[in-house]
Amino acid sequence: MRKIDKIILHCAATPEGKDYTVAQIDQWHRARGFNGIGYHLVIYRDGSVHPGRSLSKAGAHCTGQNANSIGVCYIGGCASDGKTPKDTRTPAQRTALASLVKDLLRQYPGATVHGHNEFAAKACPSFNVKSWLPTVGIKQ
């Protein structure tokens, strides 16, 4: 079993208001040479949480951090132009993300929560994870 010490939050970098699926992300990642979707969990715009890569396997979502982390991605993260970073989380996604992160922290005590942008020069997940955590009752 992998030792998990980080939960890393991502956005799909897709335009606001548009739905995408795990299967589509899987196709995108395979086209980039991955052996399947790199994220472990994906939150759709309706707040439903869908499995991606098995939690038992290292992800392909954050260079240098994959071995001991879980990658969580929400659909969205860009303005309607598909390029400009924007926090596009729906109310349902916000609720689901908070609940999911709390559940994962219970399963993996001692893990810390991060935005992808803490490890890469990217806007992803298009919101400040460190300032969001206390607003949903998560202390680091």
Rank of each mutant, 00 (worst) to 15 (best):
M1D: 12
R2G: 00
I4D: 12
I4L: 00
D5E: 15
I7F: 00
I7W: 00
L9G: 04
H10Y: 01
H10A: 04
A13K: 11
A13Y: 08
T14K: 15
T14L: 12
P15Y: 11
E16Y: 04
E16V: 05
E16H: 06
K18Q: 07
D19E: 14
D19P: 11
V22A: 14
A23I: 05
A23C: 07
Q27D: 09
W28H: 06
H29I: 07
R30G: 06
R30A: 05
A31E: 06
A31Y: 12
R32Y: 10
R32I: 07
R32H: 11
G33M: 03
F34I: 13
N35T: 04
N35A: 03
N35V: 01
G38A: 06
G38Q: 08
H40Q: 02
L41F: 02
G47H: 09
S48E: 06
V49I: 10
H50Y: 13
P51A: 04
P51E: 01
G52L: 13
G52H: 05
S54P: 01
S54H: 02
L55A: 10
S56E: 03
K57E: 00
A58S: 07
G59L: 08
A60Y: 12
A60H: 13
H61N: 00
C62G: 11
C62Y: 09
T63M: 00
Q65F: 08
Q65C: 09
Q65W: 11
A67G: 03
A67T: 06
A67H: 03
A67Y: 02
S69I: 01
S69P: 02
C73K: 10
C73N: 09
C73F: 10
Y74Q: 02
I75S: 13
G76H: 07
A79T: 11
A79L: 11
P85A: 05
K86N: 08
K86R: 12
D87W: 09
R89P: 03
T90Y: 01
P91D: 04
R94Y: 08
R94S: 08
A96G: 01
A96V: 02
L97D: 14
A98K: 04
S99H: 12
V101N: 00
L104V: 07
Q107N: 14
Y108Q: 13
G110P: 13
A111K: 13
T112D: 11
T112K: 15
H114Q: 15
G115I: 11
G115W: 10
G115M: 14
H116L: 09
H116V: 08
H116Y: 01
H116M: 07
N117M: 13
A121F: 05
A121C: 03
A123R: 07
A123W: 13
C124S: 14
F127M: 12
V129G: 10
V129I: 15
K130H: 09
K130W: 06
W132G: 09
T135Q: 15
T135F: 12
T135S: 15
V136H: 10
G137F: 08
Q140M: 12
